[in-house]
Amino acid sequence: MRRLLTALALAIVGAVMLAGLAGLPRPGDPAAPVHTHVAAHIVAHGVEDTGSRNLVTAVLLAYRAYDTFGEVVVIFAALAAVMVVLAPAAAPPPGKTAPPPSPAPAVAPSPVVGFVIRLLAPFIAAFAALVLWHGEALPGGGFQAGVILGALLVLLSVVMGRGLEQPLVPAAAARWLQAAGPLAFAAAMLIGLAGAGAVLGLPAEPAWGRHAVLLLLELGIGLGGAAIILGLYLQMRGH
């Protein structure tokens, strides 16, 4: 009986979704509404409006900057939630007692793996920097660079066995880095208010100002994303 009801509910929901899909325009249909109003305007004016040659970046950081701001806050909130949930039950008062040294990992990392990761790490970091810097002109940008850098940091932490007890950067700096995305957006909002009279507006003058704001956002999203990914990993691994 329950299985029958489940199947019935799934069939009804599926039918509704398929009916909705049938009403959508064909993928890539040039006559679809999205291609006649919004996209046409962005393709025609995107470069002069934002000064970015990559229209995906223009949409993400200028036309749809509020959405991107929301996404950045969401991943920041995810880290905050993990920190709250996984916080040690009875944390010792700061500066009173050092936490006991963590037990050695069950499997010592192999020297071969460590060597290869250390060999590849600079190239991965360079790729992340390229993706961040060139996101303005090529596919890529802050989010992509952030996840590549974050994955590299997690990989290095796994191989080197570094944990919360040997942080790469001091804890105070790590907090600011983890909040880099929302902070960059806050700065961009202030700049927009002062320079363009609108929150998240891009200043029209000077010409390099728009590039600077976009680069600031990309840097904030990238560094913040990487710090958040590493923070999630370290927090979940615990001591």
Partner: peptide, 13 residues
């Protein structure tokens, strides 16, 4: 570089 390394890591573990 990467595929023998990952296989080695699996076998090592």
């Amino acid at each position: 570089l990467s595929s023998p390394t990952s296989c080695h890591a699996l076998a090592h573990a």
